[in-house]
C-alpha cells in the first residue's frame, strides 16, 4: 500500500458518501444516471465476489463489502425510495453498446481463461466505461448541481490516483498489471473534459455549466 492508492481509495469512499449525502439532503436522485449506478453494481459484484474464496487483508475485505453494499443501496434508493425523482427520458445511453464490447474484450484479454478470471477482466473494462451514461446525461442537460459535480470529481480522482500508484509499484515491486493499467488510463481520460470544466467553474465558485 502506498499513499497514492490509499488516497485513491479514500477518494472513492468519499464519492459514495457525497452521493448518499446528495440524495438524502435534496431528497432526490435528479441528475444521477441510474444506468451508471447499475453498472457499478455489476462491476463491484463481479469483481469483489472473490471475498468468498480469497483473503487479501482486512482493509481489502472491508472495502469490498462496503462497495458492494453501498452500490446496491444506492440502486435501491433510486429504484424504490426516490423513484419519482428519476427521469429515465434523459438517461438514454445505450448500455448494450458498452457491455457487449467489454464482454468481448474480457474474453480476449484475461489472465486465465476461466469463468472468474474473465469476470474479473470484464469488471475492469466495464468500470472504465461505466461513467459514460452519467457523462452523456450531463452533456444532455448541460448543467449539474454542485454536489453532483463533487461526487464526479471524487470518483474520477480515485482512478486518476491509481496511475501514480501503478508507476510507484512498477519501480518498487517491478510488477505491472497491463489490463488494469490500460483500462485505468482510459477511465481517467474520459474524465478529462469534466475535470477541465470542474476546475474552471465549480472550484472558482461558479455553477457547473457546459458550453452550448
Amino acid at each position: 500500500m502506498n499513499l497514492f492508492r490509499l488516497f485513491g481509495d479514500l477518494s472513492h469512499l468519499a464519492s459514495i458518501f457525497i452521493l448518499l449525502h446528495k440524495i438524502r439532503t435534496t431528497r432526490s436522485c435528479r441528475g444521477i444516471s441510474f444506468k451508471t449506478q447499475a453498472l457499478y453494481v455489476a462491476v463491484f459484484v463481479s469483481r469483489y465476489l472473490d471475498i468468498l474464496w480469497e483473503w487479501v487483508s482486512l482493509y481489502n475485505f472491508v472495502m469490498k463489502v462496503f462497495f458492494i453494499a453501498s452500490s446496491c443501496f444506492i440502486l435501491y434508493l433510486m429504484k424504490m425510495k426516490y423513484r419519482p425523482t428519476h427521469d429515465p427520458s434523459i438517461d438514454t445511453f445505450r448500455v448494450e453498446f458498452l457491455v457487449g464490447p467489454c464482454a468481448l474484450l474480457a474474453l480476449i484479454f484475461n489472465y486465465k481463461f476461466t469463468f472468474t478470471e474473465v469476470l474479473w477482466s470484464l469488471s475492469i473494462f466495464l468500470e472504465s466505461l461505466a461513467i459514460l451514461p452519467q457523462l452523456f446525461m450531463l452533456q444532455r442537460t448541460g448543467e449539474a448541481e454542485t454536489i453532483t459535480t463533487h461526487y464526479l470529481a471524487a470518483l474520477g480522482a480515485y482512478r486518476a490516483l491509481y496511475i501514480p500508484n501503478w508507476i510507484y509499484r512498477y519501480f518498487s515491486e517491478g510488477v505491472v498489471d497491463p489490463i488494469a493499467v490500460t483500462a485505468g488510463l482510459v477511465q481517467t481520460a474520459l474524465y478529462a473534459d469534466f475535470f477541465y470544466v470542474y476546475f474552471t467553474t465549480v472550484i472558482q465558485g461558479q455553477k457547473f455549466e457546459l458550453p452550448a
Binding site: 480469497e54 469490498k64 489472465y111 510488477v175 505491472v176 488494469a180
Partner: peptide, 10 residues
C-alpha cells in the same frame, strides 16, 4: 517487469 494482475487492489 513482471506482467501480473494486481488483485490486492480495489
Amino acid at each position: 517487469p513482471t506482467w501480473a494482475p494486481a488483485k490486492d487492489e480495489l
